[in-house]
């Protein structure tokens, strides 16, 4: 079941090649390489400060690696500006929820569809027929996503007033609206209780199975990663400690040492 969706010999969907990031004197990432296959759920683990978010920010083009390359379906993404990343199929959520607080749930998710639609300010101001038709088609897709994530009841609520768990689901909905090939989830279980984490795990697997979306999951919650990931990469101090199946990584002596040595796990 675990490898059901990853073609064993297919070329990787995403290839991280020898990526390094330096901030001032701090080496946040040091020569990281790994591949992601289509349909995989890849868990990225490591203690606080290991460099997981930094790697996400490289994939979103918010940080420029000082060395190495990142390839999506064989093409480097490092020449693209950050706003041209969604259109090639990389969608993400943020570690500390980063929604548009004054907008409704519906509008937050509609912004997610920005790169899948087009318009110009003149047509928009005049609400020309093709603009109206475009909005209608987009609204159908957005409503499907809201239904999928059971957000219909709060569709018209302004997000700043919603509970944290619901906000995280809105962020997931917004990321799905970008119609990603790869979904980057940065600590989606953070701040959730035990039962919510369990539901989230099922949901992530369902998203992969129903929609064929490849998932890169950063998570502190070891139980969640070990139960849903097909493949795990462990980082510590910006270096790759280990890579393999969840069981392999869990039993790796370096990984055990890193986690015992850090206070927060």
């Amino acid at each position: 079941m675990m490898q059901a969706h990853s073609g064993q010999n297919a070329s990787p969907l995403l290839a991280v090649r020898d990526v390094s990031v330096v901030f001032g004197g701090i080496v946040a990432l040091n020569g990281i390489s790994f591949d992601m296959k289509k349909g995989q759920i890849l868990g990225l683990i490591g203690p606080n400060g290991a460099g997981k978010t930094t790697l996400f920010n490289c994939l979103s083009r918010l940080y420029q690696p000082s060395k190495g390359d990142i390839l999506l379906e064989g093409d480097s993404i490092l020449t693209r500006p950050p706003h041209r990343i969604a259109e090639i199929g990389i969608g993400r959520t943020f570690q500390n929820v980063a929604l548009f607080p004054n907008l409704s749930v519906l509008d937050n998710v509609r912004v997610g569809a920005h790169s899948r639609t087009n318009s110009d300010i003149v047509s928009d101001s005049l609400r020309l027929p093709w603009v109206r038709n475009g909005e209608k088609a987009m609204n159908r897709r957005v409503e499907e996503i809201l239904g999928y994530l059971e957000l219909n009841d709060v569709a018209h609520t302004v997000v700043s007033g919603l509970p944290f768990g619901t906000q995280k689901r809105v962020e997931l909905a917004r990321a799905l609206a970008t119609e990603p090939k790869i979904l980057l989830l940065d600590e989606p279980a953070g701040g959730l209780n035990h039962e919510e984490v369990y539901i989230l795990g099922d949901l992530i697997r369902k998203i992969r199975d129903d929609r064929g979306i490849t998932v890169l999951l950063v998570e502190h919650h070891m139980g969640l990663v070990m139960s849903i990931a097909d493949h795990v990469v462990a980082l510590n101090f910006g270096r790759k400690l280990a890579e393999g199946t969840p069981t392999e990584v869990q039993n790796d002596p370096d990984v055990i040492k890193a986690y015992l040595g850090s206070k927060d796990q």
């Binding site: 990343i85 969604a86 980063a98 920005h114 609400r127």
Partner: peptide, 25 residues
């Protein structure tokens, strides 16, 4: 019309969170 459209939503998204807006394209 403008503020209720795709362009208006993009502007308000920028107002609320530039980095997230950029990540949405």
């Amino acid at each position: 019309n403008l503020l209720k459209s795709r362009s208006g939503r993009a502007m308000m998204a920028i107002r609320d969170n530039e980095i997230a807006a950029s990540a949405m394209g």
